[in-house]
């Protein structure tokens, strides 16, 4: 029963259900929308369970890595959040989780987003492209210096705003194009895989 043909029909039912929103919001769309939420949660839950089993439970119980019981206990303590009285029990687990994440994000941001980006902007100003690049980066960075209120800086900040508008516009244009290609992909699925029409009509 769970073969490719049944799967294709089911996928077409779900795809058309989501596309039916283009007409107006309707029960078919809402049903598929809720199925999507359930499926996404199911995928996340299965993958989470799998990773806990592979990374922690099996090494702890079968290979004698007893230290891995610590994160398992810390993780289990998180469920105390469901009780108002014992919510405080989960604080240390949450602190560990957020502390490690903050450290990873902070070091990553300093390395990749700050020092690397600043270093890459320090280029020889020997071509028009390099000059334009440097000026736009410097001007747009200045726009984020909120403590600066000097009048002389205002035109530079304006230039920075134009630079950012170019960047936002280009990113927006690219996003639109990528969404169109996704939409085309779903139409191709409906026409060529489900209805089995031949591309080009031959």
């Amino acid at each position: 029963m769970l073969n490719a043909t049944t799967g294709t029909w089911l996928a077409a039912f779900l795809t058309l259900g989501l596309f039916s929103w283009m007409y107006k919001e309707n029960p078919w769309f809402r049903l598929v929308e809720h199925i999507y939420v359930g499926a996404a949660l199911g995928v996340l839950a299965s993958q989470g369970y799998q990773s806990v089993m592979d990374i922690a439970w099996k090494p702890a119980t079968q290979q004698g890595k007893t230290l891995l019981y610590v994160p398992l206990i810390l993780g289990a303590l998180l469920f105390s959040r469901w009780s108002k009285k014992y919510m405080w029990v989960s604080r240390s687990s949450m602190g560990f989780l957020v502390g490690t994440l903050s450290a990873v994000v902070m070091t990553g941001a300093i390395k990749a987003q700050l020092t690397a980006q600043v270093a890459a902007t320090m280029m020889p100003l020997n071509s028009a492209n390099n000059i334009i690049f440097f000026v736009i980066t410097a001007a747009a960075t200045m726009y984020f210096v909120f403590t600066l209120q000097a009048k002389w800086a205002s035109p530079i900040m304006d230039l920075g705003k134009y630079g950012m508008m170019i960047a936002f516009g280009a990113t927006f244009g690219n996003t639109v194009m990528s969404r169109i290609s996704l939409f085309t992909g779903r139409l191709q699925f409906l026409l060529f895989q489900w209805l089995k029409l031949t591309p080009g009509g031959s």
Binding site: Q113, Q117, V118, F134, I136, T141, G163, M164
Partner: peptide, 29 residues
Amino acid sequence: VWNIPTTAGMRAVTIGAALSVVGNAFRVI
């Protein structure tokens, strides 16, 4: 447009965002 002004503009946004990320992470830590 993509290689020069867009990359330059986004670089400034990235630097600004990185500063705020570092500041916020520091507050949490």
